[in-house]
């Protein structure tokens, strides 16, 4: 009796969720696996994929993703996505090395395996790079120098100390500084907390107290600059430059009042559209060599299986609304 009750509950739970609509077999099925779901960046990118698919008509996008950036969780999701046997999988790896063997298995199964933001990946049919780490680091540092000058101490905060792509960009920014601005130096080793307003705010307040020579902060991660600007505002320290990469619609009011000095970020919606275009191009028989012009970012650089364009641009109070996220 009770057993059946439990069974009914589970049945209901599963069936109420199995609202998947399969069917139209002529459409290409694409699974998109972001680093994690539930943050504005990837939500905007999903929208880019879906809008492009709706316009073009023969693509069907589904999104699978973990609630956090755990590489092991992502590996398991990718394995499940391969079992789903779609036409293509686009994955943004949390840790490329973890996914390599699984990517290989997907290719063996005849699925077009595409990666995004995975420099050096071996087992992808195509890797889409919308950001050149050297250029990102250099641009970020140039913006920083514009706002803070080329003398004094600074610190870099990343989203998490274990986030590889953030660490790479931070390394490149430091490299650019060491080569061009010897007057600048890091007051402390890398910090973490750029994905939390509170952490960014608290660490910035502490740094401002601990180091008199601090002229500014660089935040890689979408909430760092928000927290940093709140910290400098409460200290009335306009002299500390806050340079980050926050969501434009959120950063806008801070940029207007000048508490965020510079904001530098890609437009994930447009990246999503270009990625969908690239995947469809390959699925419909095209090759990487003849991708032509992307609908959003023009002609990409092509090197083997790597398609590269540089999407990040500076967000100002004036152009913030044009980003659409």
């Amino acid at each position: 009796m009770r057993k059946t009750l439990l069974i009914v509950v589970v049945l209901l739970a599963v069936f109420s969720l199995s609202t998947c609509s399969r069917g139209d077999d002529d459409a290409y099925e694409i699974v998109f696996i972001p680093k994690l779901v539930g943050i504005p960046w990837f939500t905007a990118m999903e929208n880019g994929f879906e809008d492009y698919a709706a316009e073009i008509g023969d693509l069907k996008i589904s999104v699978l993703g973990a609630p956090d950036t755990d590489p092991a969780a992502q590996a398991r999701i990718l394995e499940d996505a391969i079992s789903q046997e779609p036409d293509a999988i686009v994955v943004v790896p949390n840790d490329t090395a973890v996914l390599e063997p699984i990517m290989a298995r997907g290719r063996e199964a005849g699925i077009l395996m595409v990666s995004q933001e995975a420099p050096g990946i071996q087992n992808a049919d195509m890797d889409i790079e919308f950001l050149i780490a050297e250029r990102y680091g250099a641009d970020m540092m140039e913006l920083f120098v514009r706002e803070a000058g080329s003398e004094g101490g600074y610190a870099i905060m990343v989203g998490g100390l274990t986030v590889t792509s953030h660490n790479q960009r931070a390394d490149m920014a430091v490299k650019h500084q060491e080569e061009n601005y010897p007057g600048l130096y890091q007051v402390t080793s890398r910090l973490e907390g750029s994905e939390s307003v509170e952490d960014a705010q608290n660490r910035t307040l502490e740094l401002a107290a601990a180091y008199d020579d601090l002229v500014g902060m660089i935040y890689i991660g979408s909430l760092g600059a928000i927290g940093g600007s709140q910290a400098t505002k409460s200290l009335n320290r306009d002299d500390i430059a806050i340079v980050g990469g926050s969501v434009p619609s959120q950063a806008k009011s801070y940029l207007e009042e000048g508490s965020i000095d510079a904001n530098y970020i890609s437009n994930p919606y447009r990246i999503g559209r270009d990625s969908a275009y690239l995947v469809r191009h390959l699925l419909s028989g095209g090759t990487i060599a003849d991708v032509g012009d992307l609908p959003e970012y023009g002609t990409p650089a092509i090197d083997g299986t790597v398609v590269t364009f540089h999407a990040p641009s500076e967000v100002t109070a004036e152009n913030a609304d044009m980003f659409g996220f």
């Binding site: 755990d70 969780a73 973890v98 063997p101 998490g160």
Partner: peptide, 13 residues
């Protein structure tokens, strides 16, 4: 299986 190790791998498990 994952060919890598780091401080926060598998935290969701």
């Amino acid at each position: 299986r994952f060919n890598s190790a780091n401080a926060r791998q598998g935290s969701s498990l």
